[in-house]
Simulated scan of single mutants.
Amino acid sequence: MLAQARDTIPSPGALRGGLAMDLKWDGYRAIAFSPARPDGPFLLQTRRGSLIQDRFPDLAAAAVQLPPGLVLDGELLVLNSAGTMDFEVLQRRAVTTTPRAVQTLARAHPAYFVAFDILQLGGQPIVAEPYEQRRSRLEALFAGHALSPPWTLCPSTKDPAVAREWLETWTRTPGVEGVVCKGLLQPYRPGAIGWLKVRARQTTEAVVGAITGTLSRPRMLVLGRFDGEGRLRYVGKTTQISTTAAQQLVGWLTAASVGTHPWEDARFSTAWGNRDVLDTTLVAPDRVAEVSVDTAQDRGVWRHPVRLARLRLDMPVNDVPTV
């Protein structure tokens, strides 16, 4: 089941039966299948349907805690050597297949499965039950079987004030993005967009390095920041720019002279994790954009499109935060 983005926590009547709000994590969404019989396999499936349990032997070994015939929906998280959640290390674990390297990573960077829904219990599907009842079953599962890490119960609340506190404070912790709102009477509908997600956002600045569209009608901005050696590094791109906002950019962005732009050989994907390439026009990297961003980053790159607020004509590019 999927979630639609919202800017703020909705009113209680936005979803059936009132709202429950879970913490939203910056990890890998996954479905965990406990073995149906003692000698059966533990399975870990991604949103795209790939089975990745061989890359997480620590979770597979911990599956002995789970009762048979259990299916959990949740988020995969990994800790780095500093003990904080780290998406880059999680990515490395998810794509590593060499057995020796898999074991080394598992020892150095343990994985956790944060369960936020239960889809099957004792071999019987319970997706038709309302969320409130499924949540009670999930809490009873953790209590009755004394589940311990790497199995972790996702925090949940019915109090909007608590959820707002999570948005304001908990999202300062790496790995916590915001909250997901669910209707207490909602069944679980696989693949349907029935939940609502609210990511914590902040305002910051970046250098405009390229555009899609034309100088007379920019469609998106491709953004960068300078590193410690003065090189302009790609950090993200905006959502589609409105006609009104595009008009305000006209005249302020100029095409880069041939041989002068640090991105002349660069290619930018249409979306994070996508191999399709954007058709871009390089512009002189002398303008600063004020943007609204969420907390999800991968090596300094915002994984989700950012929102343009305005050009900061008063701000020199050297005052933009570095990467």
Results as ranks from 00 to 15, higher is better:
Met1Val: 14
Arg6Cys: 05
Ile9Pro: 00
Pro12Asp: 11
Pro12Ser: 11
Gly13Trp: 10
Leu15Gln: 13
Ala20Tyr: 12
Met21Tyr: 01
Asp26Ile: 03
Gly27Glu: 03
Tyr28Gln: 04
Ile31Ala: 15
Ile31Arg: 10
Phe33Arg: 11
Arg37His: 09
Pro38Ile: 09
Asp39His: 10
Leu43Lys: 11
Gln45Tyr: 03
Ile52Val: 13
Ala60Phe: 00
Ala61Pro: 00
Pro67Gly: 01
Pro68Cys: 09
Leu70Pro: 05
Leu72Gly: 13
Leu72Met: 09
Gly74Phe: 06
Gly74Tyr: 10
Glu75Arg: 05
Glu75Tyr: 04
Ser81His: 09
Ala82Thr: 02
Thr84Val: 14
Thr84Phe: 13
Met85Thr: 14
Glu88Met: 01
Arg92Gln: 15
Arg93Gly: 01
Ala94Tyr: 06
Ala94Ser: 15
Thr98Glu: 14
Pro99Ala: 03
Val102Glu: 07
Gln103Ala: 08
Thr104Ala: 15
Leu105Trp: 13
Pro110Glu: 07
Tyr112Gln: 12
Ala115Pro: 09
Tyr131Asp: 14
Gln133Trp: 06
Gln133Leu: 11
Glu139Leu: 00
Ala140Asn: 05
Leu141Glu: 02
Leu141His: 01
Ala146Ile: 01
Leu147Cys: 02
Ser148Ile: 02
Pro149Leu: 09
Pro150Arg: 05
Thr152Gln: 11
Pro155Ala: 01
Lys158Ala: 05
Pro160Phe: 05
Pro160Val: 03
Arg164Met: 06
Arg164Glu: 12
Trp166Cys: 02
Trp170Arg: 13
Arg172Tyr: 06
Arg172Ala: 07
Gly175Glu: 05
Glu177Ser: 10
Gly178Phe: 03
Gly178Cys: 09
Lys182Gln: 15
Leu185Asp: 15
Gln186Arg: 12
Pro187Arg: 14
Pro187Ser: 15
Pro190Tyr: 10
Ile193Gln: 14
Ile193Ala: 12
Trp195Asn: 15
Val198Gln: 10
Val198Phe: 08
Val198Met: 05
Thr204Glu: 07
Val208Gln: 09
Ala210Tyr: 13
Ile211Ser: 05
Leu215Ser: 10
Pro218Val: 10
Met220Gln: 09
Glu229Asn: 04
Leu232Trp: 06
Val235Ser: 03
Gly236Met: 12
Gly236Phe: 12
Gly236Asn: 09
Lys237Thr: 03
Ser242Glu: 08
Ser242Cys: 07
Thr244Lys: 12
Ala246Cys: 06
Gln247Gly: 14
Gln248Thr: 08
Leu249Pro: 09
Leu249Phe: 12
Leu253Asp: 08
Ala256Trp: 11
Ser257Cys: 06
Val258Ala: 15
His261Val: 06
Trp263Phe: 01
Asp265Glu: 12
Ser269Met: 07
Ser269His: 07
Thr270Phe: 04
Arg275His: 14
Thr280Phe: 11
Val283Gln: 02
Asp286Trp: 00
Arg287His: 04
Arg287Asn: 00
Val291Ala: 04
Ser292Met: 05
Thr295His: 11
Gln297Ile: 03
Gln297His: 03
Gly300His: 04
His304Ala: 08
Pro305Gly: 04
Arg307Ser: 02
Arg307Trp: 00
Leu311Met: 00
Asp314Ile: 10
Met315Asn: 07
Met315Cys: 07
Val317Ser: 01
Val320His: 01
Thr322Trp: 00
